[in-house]
């Protein structure tokens, strides 16, 4: 037939925001580089629910999608290494480096291949620091009995130090804080802003850095293979630029965060190095060991993936 234009549907969710800026940028760059021969329609929730985006890719309903590993750990066990608590990731650039290193590992590629998906790039999220009501909690002992809205591995980490993880949907987090259903909520900054939890907060842990979610952007393998060489080149070569745009944009949001804290009178809590070390020993080590054990039992090289994350962190810091 005729050389039809290539049009990809991209499934993301919510509204256009910092979290989706790299996808929008990618669409823009790809169209530019191919003179409009290869375009992407970014759909915000019209094509799938976030938790079914991998299913949609596997079916072939759309060609590109974003999701978070923690939404469904059993769908993508290998990349949940990036969601282990207290990995020690300090900023978004480090988050990009470790994510892309794991994505390039054959075990991760094989894991996602079951969904007919190929990992393209990450959507780096800052650490899920806590906002809380009442007296600031800056010592390990004060986490005992704390009701915290934190899901998955993060919830387990707080549980290890005596916290009580409490199931509340993100949309009810504000309500839950107001009603004392929870004392603290773990979110990235943009979510604290959009779900309004910051408005109820007395304090925010600036350096607890307990962990984050990992949200890759994937493409349908068949669709990727069917691209012409020029189109594939346009796509691959745009990833770094799209990520750079994302980091730049998110950086602005983080600058704004400090002024929001000041404006709302939210105290910035710094936790001492000894306390953090105690926290890691109690919460991070056993959870990581269990994770490695579980992965190894499934035939996934858990230790190797974890070591890869640590080595990449070291290399990234050495390179700066």
């Amino acid at each position: 037939g005729e050389a039809a234009a290539t049009e990809w549907n991209v499934s993301v969710w919510g509204k256009r925001r910092a979290f989706t800026e790299h996808v929008e940028k990618l669409a823009e760059l790809v169209s530019e580089k191919t003179d409009g021969a290869f375009t992407m329609n970014v759909s915000y929730g019209g094509l799938s629910k976030p938790r079914e985006n991998l299913d949609g890719i596997s079916i072939g309903a759309f060609e590109m999608a974003q999701f978070c590993a923690g939404y469904h750990r059993d769908k993508n066990p290998s990349i949940t290494v990036l969601e282990l608590p207290f990995l020690g990731v300090n900023n978004l650039a480090e988050e990009v480096a470790v994510s892309h290193a794991v994505y390039a590992h054959p075990a991760a590629a094989k894991d996602l291949a079951r969904w007919n998906a190929k990992l393209l790039m990450t959507s780096p999220m800052p650490q899920y620091n806590l906002v809380g009501t009442g007296e600031p909690r800056d010592e390990l002992a004060e986490f005992d009995g704390m009701r915290v809205r934190a899901t998955g591995g993060l919830g387990k980490a707080f549980e290890a130090v005596g916290g009580v993880p409490t199931s509340v949907p993100a949309t009810e987090a504000y309500n839950a804080m107001e009603s004392g259903v929870v004392d603290t909520v773990a979110f990235a900054q943009h979510a604290h802003l959009s779900f309004g939890t910051i408005n109820k907060a007395d304090w925010w842990t600036a350096n607890l850095n307990p962990g984050t979610v990992n949200c890759p952007v994937v493409v349908n393998t068949d669709a990727y293979d069917m691209l012409s060489d020029a189109e594939r080149e346009a796509l691959d070569s745009s990833v770094d630029e799209a990520i750079a745009h994302y980091l730049d944009n998110y950086g602005k949001l983080l600058t704004k965060w400090d002024s929001v804290l000041e404006e709302k009178g939210v105290e910035k809590v710094m936790i001492s190095e000894e306390q953090l070390a105690a926290f890691r020993a109690k919460a991070a080590d056993p959870i990581r060991e269990q994770w490695i054990k579980d992965m190894t039992a499934q035939g996934i090289p858990g230790q190797e993936l974890y070591d890869l994350v640590m080595k990449t962190l070291e290399d990234t810091r050495a390179g700066n």
Binding site: R73, D74, K75, P165, D294, A297
Partner: peptide, 15 residues
């Protein structure tokens, strides 16, 4: 897979 599960709930990982 463990518990025959390839998809699990977000919080406590029920198959």
């Amino acid at each position: 897979a463990p518990l025959w599960s390839r998809d699990s709930s977000i919080d406590i990982g029920i198959p």
